[in-house]
Simulated assay, not measured.
Amino acid sequence: MALDPLIPSVVRLKFQRALKLHYLAWIDGDLIKAGELVALTALELALNDRYGGQVAGRPKKKLKSGQAPSLTDKPPQRSFAALLKHMVDGDGLTDADIPMIARCGGTAVGQLTGTTKPTLADRRNGLAHGDPFDGLPTSGLIELVRDLIDFAYRDYTKEGRALGIVSHDTLPSVSG
């Protein structure tokens, strides 16, 4: 279930935390929902990294009419739903590209585009904002998240392998 070692460690470590919570849920089932939330936040982090510059966002602070953003302003905030939809519309993701779906059947693309409810963004929002009625685990969610992160980084990891890099942690440091 681990992510490719060429995926940046900030994403891998967050996903590993989600896996750890899932493993601990064998002892205490209440941890499964926390694991799902961490997995979805790892996915959002990965999508912001890979697609953030390609998806329009809203500024984190409201600018006055005619005011230009300054260099110290935080980058625009992109919605998780827009990032998920971009995987399909902008990067060409199909169900055939998701190993879990290809192996087991079914569909997941609708949970990214919004045609199937609840979407992954709906699930994340419900978990983050304390949905009082969502107590059961979502079957296959952590595996789907792993496959989506792998898809988002597929070109990145392919380039790393072509350069002979075996782990993101062993990238040469850049000195200025």
Rank of each mutant, 00 (worst) to 15 (best):
Q16T: 10
L84Y: 03
A152H: 02
P172I: 04
D30G: 13
V10M: 06
A162Y: 03
K60S: 09
E36F: 05
L163R: 15
L83Y: 08
R50M: 14
G164A: 15
D95L: 09
D89G: 04
R50C: 03
L21R: 02
T138C: 09
Q67A: 15
G176W: 12
G105D: 11
L71H: 03
T115Q: 07
K62I: 13
D122N: 12
V55S: 09
S9T: 13
G35A: 13
I142P: 00
V174G: 08
D131S: 14
L120H: 05
L127N: 01
T41D: 15
A42N: 02
T115M: 04
M87Y: 02
S139M: 07
S173P: 10
P99N: 04
I149S: 00
L6R: 01
A68Q: 08
S65V: 13
P137H: 07
D150R: 03
T113P: 10
E159H: 11
I32M: 13
V166T: 14
H22T: 02
A152Q: 03
D122T: 08
R154C: 07
L83T: 02
V10H: 08
I7K: 00
L45A: 12
K64L: 13
G164T: 08
D155T: 12
T116E: 10
Y23C: 03
K64T: 07
H86L: 04
A121E: 09
L19P: 00
L144V: 14
G164D: 08
L24K: 02
D89K: 08
R123F: 10
G176C: 06
S167M: 04
I98E: 00
P137Q: 12
D150N: 12
K158G: 06
D73V: 10
Y23N: 07
G135W: 09
D147Y: 04
D155E: 15
R124N: 05
V145G: 00
T115S: 15
L84C: 15
D4E: 12
D95F: 09
D73K: 11
I165L: 15
A96D: 15
R58D: 11
L144M: 13
D89S: 14
L148V: 07
S139P: 04
